[in-house]
C-alpha cells in the first residue's frame, strides 16, 4: 500500500514538474519582454524544478542521497528567484524600458506611431525617459 502511495506521489510530482517546466519554457520563448521572461523564469521554473527534485527525493526513499536532493531543492528554491531578480535589475540599470500598455496600443494601431516598438523592447534613451 505504501508502495502504491509512493508510486503515485512520484508520478504526480514528475507530471506537474514537467508541466510547469513546459510552461516556463513556453513563457521564456514567447513572452515579449525581458521582465516578463524573468517573471516566468523565476516563478514557474522554480516550481517545476522543485517538484521534479521532490519526485527524485520521494523515489529515493530513506537514504543518505535524499539529503543531497532536499539540499538541492532548498538551494534551487533560494537561488533561482534571486538570480532572476539580479538579471531583471541589471536589465533595468542598463536602460531597457519595460513594455507597457501604451506600447501595446501603439503596436496595435501603427498608423499614428512614428516609432514601431513592436518587435524589441530595447528603445532606451530619449523616448523612455517618462517611464523611469
Amino acid at each position: 500500500m505504501i508502495d502504491q502511495l509512493q508510486f503515485w506521489a512520484v508520478l504526480l510530482c514528475l507530471a506537474f514538474g514537467l508541466f510547469f517546466t513546459f510552461v516556463s519554457t513556453v513563457g521564456v520563448l514567447r513572452l515579449p519582454d525581458v521582465y516578463s521572461r524573468a517573471h516566468t523564469a523565476s516563478q514557474t521554473d522554480t516550481l517545476g524544478a522543485g517538484l521534479s527534485l521532490a519526485a527524485v527525493a520521494l523515489a529515493l526513499g530513506w537514504e543518505s542521497t535524499t539529503i543531497y536532493t532536499v539540499l538541492l531543492l532548498f538551494f534551487v528554491f533560494l537561488t533561482n528567484p534571486t538570480a532572476a531578480h539580479a538579471i531583471a535589475r541589471s536589465a533595468a540599470e542598463s536602460g531597457i524600458t519595460p513594455l507597457t500598455a501604451e506600447d501595446e496600443l501603439e503596436s496595435e494601431t501603427p498608423d499614428d506611431g512614428a516609432s514601431a516598438p513592436g518587435d524589441t523592447a530595447v528603445n532606451a534613451g530619449e523616448e523612455g525617459g517618462d517611464h523611469a
Partner: peptide
C-alpha cells in the same frame, strides 16, 4: 535581443 535575455535563458537552462 539583449544580453539579459541570453543570460536568463542560460540560467533557466542550467536549472
Amino acid at each position: 535581443p539583449t544580453t539579459q535575455d541570453r543570460l536568463l535563458a542560460v540560467n533557466v537552462l542550467g536549472t
